[in-house]
Amino acid sequence: MTARVLKPAPAWLVSSEQPIGPGRVGRRKRAAFLEKTLGDGAEVVRRAMYAESADPRGDRPGVLFRIDPRIKLVALVVLLLGVALVHTPVTLAVVYLGLVLLAWAGGVSVGAFVTRVWLFVPLFTAVALAPATLSVITPGEVLVPLWTWHGAQEGITSQGLTSAGLVILRVACSVSLVLLVTISTSWNRLLAALGALGVPRIFVMVIAMAYRYLFVLLGSVLDMVLARKARTVQPVAHTAGDRRFVGAAVGTLLGRAGHLSEEVHQAMTARGYAGQHHTLTGFRASGLDLLALAASLMVAVVIVGGDHLLR
C-alpha cells in the first residue's frame, strides 16, 4: 500500500504573502462587555465555591467553621424564618449588624462577606424595587418630587422608601445568613448534612450536579468567547451575523455542556456514587453545636419578639 498523495495546497496558502489585514482597525478598546462579564462571572463563582469554601483544617478555624453542618442548616432555617417575620427596618438593620459581628467573631473575612452581599442585593433587589418607591405605586408623602400630574406632585415617597428599604434589608439579612453557612462549610459536607437531615437523595443529587455543571458551563462559555476573540481584530458590529454567533454559541454550549456533564456523572458513578454523599469527617454534635442551636432559636425568638414590640 502506498501513502495517500495529498491534494496540492492552494497557492495563497504556500506563498509568502503578508498575513491578512489589518485592514480597517478600530480604536483600542477596553475588553468587550460580554467577555469581561463572563470572565468576571466565572471568577466570582469560582471564588465563591472553591477559594473561600471552608477548610476546617486551617491553622485556627473560627468558631463558625467548627459547628456541625447539620446544626448550621437547622439554625439557618430557623433564622431565615425569623427574618421573614420581621416588619420593621430598624429590627432588620440590627439583625444585619449582628450578622456582620457574627461573621467577624466566627472567623469569616468581613470584607469579603459584606462585599458579596452588597454586590448582589442592589443588582437584583434594588433595581426591581425602584418603581415601588414612586408615588404612583406607593402613595404617600412625596420626599423627592419628580413630576406633576393634574397639579399634584408625584415622585419618591417616604412610604415607598420604607417599603423598599424593608425588602432590601430582609434580602440582605437572608443572603448574609446563607453566605455565613456556605462560606464556613465545605460543599461536600454541606451536601452530606442535607442528606443526614433527611433531604431526599434525588434533591441532593440535583444540587450536586448543578454545582459541578456550573463550572463546566462557565469553562465552555469562556473558551468560546476567547476562541472568537482570537479571530477578531476589529470591533464587531451588532449585525445579524453577530446575533447568529450568539445563537450558534448557545446551541454549541448546550451540546458541549450536556456531553461533559454526562461524563462527570459517569466519573462519579464509576467510583460508587449512588446519590448519597459520604465525607471523610463524620458528623458528631458537640456541646458547642447544641449551644449554637439553642442560641439560634433564642435569637430568632428575640428578633420576632423585639420586632413585635417596635411595631
Binding site: E263, V264, A267
Partner: peptide, 8 residues
C-alpha cells in the same frame, strides 16, 4: 477534568 470534582 471530568474526573476531579471535589473541593480538595
Amino acid at each position: 477534568d471530568v474526573q476531579v470534582f471535589s473541593a480538595t
